[in-house]
Simulated assay, not measured.
Amino acid sequence: MQAQKLRDTKYEKGFLAKGQKTGVWEYYGYTPSGEKVVLQRYDYDQHRLLYFRPGPDITCHTEVSPGKWSYVRPDQPPLFIGSEVALAEYTSRMVYPPAAQAQNIQGKVVVSFMIDTLGHLSNYRLVQRIGGGCDEEALRVARTLPEQWVPARMGRRAVAVEYELPLNFRLAQP
């Protein structure tokens, strides 16, 4: 029997075995009033999403049938395993380009990529740019995201979607 270690933080709870997540994990978020709520429940042994807390309705560019794409609201949007909190942790690794800082460039860069029916990422492209090296940095960060996505679903079937990831560049106020 291998030793398991419980990880219980503000945002996640589950067991680790040899440094890998195992069994069912819960991922948490907080309501505006500060109430702790379960955002996702994921079974790492079965590689299966057990529960997700519905958020706002999201319209995605979705492959509704082979080769036919349309903007629709999937029954289940694509989900980053660990919730938006974990996704934000990865995107916080952006490095503000010195050229952009020197030119006081701030704003939002939007990177689009496809999440296929298996949760794999591809076709990265810039949808909204601000320059100064920020666009390249946003694209670099998007390309380093781990492939821990649960694909979108229409009914019982997984569907490919084009996902738009906004990344904000803000200079610290003196």
Score class of each variant (00 low, 15 high):
86 A>P: 06
42 Y>F: 14
125 R>Y: 08
99 A>H: 06
159 V>G: 04
11 Y>Q: 01
96 Y>K: 08
39 L>W: 04
109 V>T: 05
139 L>G: 06
103 Q>G: 00
140 R>F: 12
165 L>I: 02
97 P>Q: 03
144 T>H: 09
163 Y>L: 05
115 I>M: 08
104 N>M: 10
45 D>Y: 04
23 G>L: 01
157 R>F: 11
162 E>K: 09
120 H>R: 15
6 L>R: 10
129 R>M: 15
95 V>K: 13
122 S>I: 06
149 W>V: 03
82 G>A: 02
51 Y>H: 09
30 Y>W: 13
115 I>Q: 12
98 P>Y: 09
31 T>N: 07
18 K>H: 14
84 E>S: 11
133 G>E: 11
153 R>E: 12
46 Q>W: 00
27 Y>F: 15
118 L>V: 03
115 I>W: 06
95 V>Q: 13
153 R>L: 12
158 A>L: 02
51 Y>W: 01
32 P>L: 12
90 Y>P: 01
165 L>F: 07
148 Q>D: 08
120 H>T: 01
27 Y>D: 01
151 P>L: 06
14 G>A: 07
55 G>E: 10
45 D>F: 00
167 L>S: 00
53 R>G: 00
80 F>T: 04
3 A>L: 15
115 I>H: 03
67 G>E: 02
101 Q>T: 08
17 A>E: 14
59 T>Y: 12
20 Q>S: 13
29 G>R: 00
104 N>Q: 14
146 P>N: 05
16 L>W: 12
112 S>E: 15
156 R>G: 14
167 L>P: 05
99 A>K: 12
61 H>F: 15
102 A>S: 14
52 F>L: 02
166 P>E: 00
127 V>P: 00
106 Q>R: 08
127 V>Y: 11
5 K>M: 09
157 R>D: 13
54 P>V: 01
87 L>S: 07
132 G>K: 02
146 P>S: 07
124 Y>L: 11
145 L>M: 09
64 V>W: 03
81 I>C: 00
12 E>G: 07
99 A>I: 13
123 N>G: 14
135 D>M: 08
93 R>V: 04
7 R>L: 15
128 Q>K: 15
118 L>N: 11
61 H>K: 14
102 A>T: 10
123 N>E: 13
104 N>E: 09
41 R>I: 02
36 K>A: 05
165 L>Y: 11
97 P>Y: 03
134 C>N: 05
34 G>R: 09
103 Q>A: 15
78 P>H: 04
170 R>T: 15
123 N>C: 05
75 D>T: 14
80 F>S: 05
47 H>D: 12
109 V>L: 10
125 R>D: 03
161 V>S: 04
127 V>L: 13
121 L>V: 02
89 E>H: 10
30 Y>D: 08
22 T>F: 05
118 L>C: 07
66 P>T: 10
49 L>I: 09
149 W>N: 01
172 A>G: 07
16 L>M: 14
109 V>C: 01
96 Y>D: 01
40 Q>R: 03
39 L>I: 07
77 P>T: 11
158 A>Q: 11
133 G>V: 05
105 I>R: 05
79 L>A: 10
54 P>L: 08
55 G>V: 03
70 S>W: 07
116 D>H: 10
57 D>G: 07
127 V>K: 15
59 T>W: 10
103 Q>E: 13
154 M>T: 10
73 R>V: 15
70 S>C: 04
